[in-house]
Simulated assay, not measured.
Amino acid sequence: MRSRGVMLGYRNLPEETEAALKGGWLHTGDLARQDDEGLLYIVDRKKDMIISGGFNIYAGEVEAVLAAHPSVGSAAVIGVPDSRWGEMVTAFVVPRPGRHIDVPALRSHVKQVKGSMYAPKKVVVVDSLPTTSVGKVDKKGLRATYWAESARNVH
Rank of each mutant, 00 (worst) to 15 (best):
M1P: 10
R4Q: 15
V6G: 10
M7E: 13
L8K: 15
G9R: 14
G9C: 12
Y10Q: 07
R11M: 12
P14I: 12
P14E: 10
P14G: 12
P14M: 11
P14K: 08
P14D: 10
E15K: 11
E16P: 01
T17S: 09
T17D: 01
A20N: 13
A20G: 11
A20F: 13
G24S: 13
G24Y: 07
W25G: 01
W25A: 09
L26K: 01
T28D: 11
T28H: 05
A32C: 08
Q34M: 14
Q34Y: 09
E37S: 15
L39Q: 15
D44S: 10
K46R: 13
D48Y: 05
M49K: 06
I50Q: 07
I50A: 08
I51G: 00
I51T: 10
S52L: 02
G53E: 01
F55R: 08
N56F: 05
N56R: 11
I57R: 03
I57V: 12
E61C: 08
V62I: 11
A64Q: 15
V65G: 03
L66A: 09
A67H: 11
A68Y: 08
A68G: 15
H69P: 07
S71H: 06
V72S: 09
V72A: 08
A75T: 13
A75S: 15
A76K: 03
I78T: 13
I78N: 07
P81G: 12
P81A: 13
P81K: 13
D82W: 01
D82H: 04
S83M: 14
R84F: 03
R84Y: 03
E87F: 02
A91W: 02
F92D: 03
V93E: 06
V93K: 05
V94L: 01
P95C: 12
H100A: 06
I101T: 01
P104T: 02
A105H: 03
A105L: 02
L106R: 03
L106I: 12
K111S: 15
K111Q: 14
S116P: 05
M117F: 05
M117Y: 09
M117D: 04
P120C: 07
P120Y: 04
K121M: 14
V123T: 05
V125Y: 00
V126L: 05
V126H: 00
S128L: 01
L129G: 05
T131Q: 05
S133T: 08
S133D: 09
V137Y: 04
K139R: 14
L142R: 00
L142G: 00
T145I: 06
Y146W: 15
W147T: 06
A148G: 13
E149W: 02
S150A: 12
S150W: 14
R152C: 00
N153I: 12
H155I: 10
